[in-house]
């Protein structure tokens, strides 16, 4: 298992405070994404737990793309990965953040 945190600045774009939401299941080739309101307000912090070691560059690219699509500040994302492909990771992140925003603040 490998664990690391990546923080992406998004400027002054603090999201509203929403209740935490979880999306996806920890099963082979899949992952679970937890989205929570947090600090600091000007960046998105992503905490990754993955069994596949040595793919940090790819994670950086996939997560960077995600933050570009959804530049939300004050959001903490935690990922429990079980060997998902980049496409599945992107899809699950999009679903999770949409679910998170759809919840009443």
């Amino acid at each position: 298992m490998e664990q690391f945190v990546m923080t992406f600045p998004v400027g002054n774009r603090q999201s509203e405070i929403h209740p935490p939401r979880v999306c996806g299941v920890v099963s082979s080739g899949n992952l679970e994404v937890l989205v929570e309101s947090g600090e600091p307000g000007d960046s998105c912090r992503i905490d990754v737990h993955t069994p596949a070691e040595g793919f940090r560059d790819i994670w950086n690219a996939v997560l960077g793309d995600f933050v570009e699509r959804h530049p939300v500040g004050g959001v903490n994302v935690t990922i429990n990965d079980a060997g998902a492909t980049p496409a599945v990771v992107s899809l699950r992140l999009d679903q999770a953040v949409e679910l998170f925003r759809s919840e009443k603040p």
Binding site: M1, V22, E32, L34, H49, P51, A82
Partner: peptide
């Protein structure tokens, strides 16, 4: 005991196996 409380299994973690926030 919702997932954001992160009561996942320390035993899975110790064996280097993936954990889930709600322990399944």
């Amino acid at each position: 005991c919702p997932p954001h409380l992160r009561h996942s299994s320390p035993h899975l973690a110790r064996l280097n196996a993936p954990v889930a926030f709600d322990d399944g």
